[in-house]
Amino acid sequence: MHTAYDAFFTFAFTPKTVTTDGVHIRDGIDLKRTMVYVVLALQLCYLFGTYNIGYQHFDAIGLYPGLLDGLHLKLVYGLIKILPIFIVTHVVGLGIEFYYASRKGHGVEEGFLVTGALIPLLMPPDIPMWILAFSVAFAVIIGKEAFGGTGMNIVNIALLARVFVFFAYPTYIAGTRYGFPVLKK
């Protein structure tokens, strides 16, 4: 419990710890800030990704052919698709992070913030949620925690999640259910 409390507390406040031996002043940067700035930098990708999901959807059913036609509808549709992915990724991934942090007795490391922001960008938008949850759990446990947590992993966790989906469930993401419109003709 303390780990969870600590994680939320340090989210709100930078702790009042002071330097002991070694240097007496420290750079203003910390891991939270580093990771959050990566996530902020990814927001443009999120914006385009959200739009693109909506655009592809309406393109497939033959509505709003122009790039900017029905922009709000395209964005809303994209959000409907991407928000559940984002939420499931974070619930599963952060849940595992919290569990391991309390087990090992260290603070919750911020590395998952970036992983959690990258996974929704990498996954197919119509991926079933249980596959997503599975792949995130696999990537975080086998890819990171098995090696000792943030900074010790030898593969990129977000990419490992994508690779897991690719090899474990190829039929779900490779188009047997929808197929290419061109091929149908």
Partner: peptide
């Protein structure tokens, strides 16, 4: 770090204190 706008005030001098400005983490 470039995440702070220090580059806007070149030559500025700072009042540093002994706060660690964050918690100890694994090597990244």
């Amino acid at each position: 770090s470039r995440t702070y706008p220090n580059f806007l005030v070149p030559g500025a001098k700072f009042r540093a204190d002994s706060n660690t400005h964050g918690e100890k983490r694994a090597f990244v």
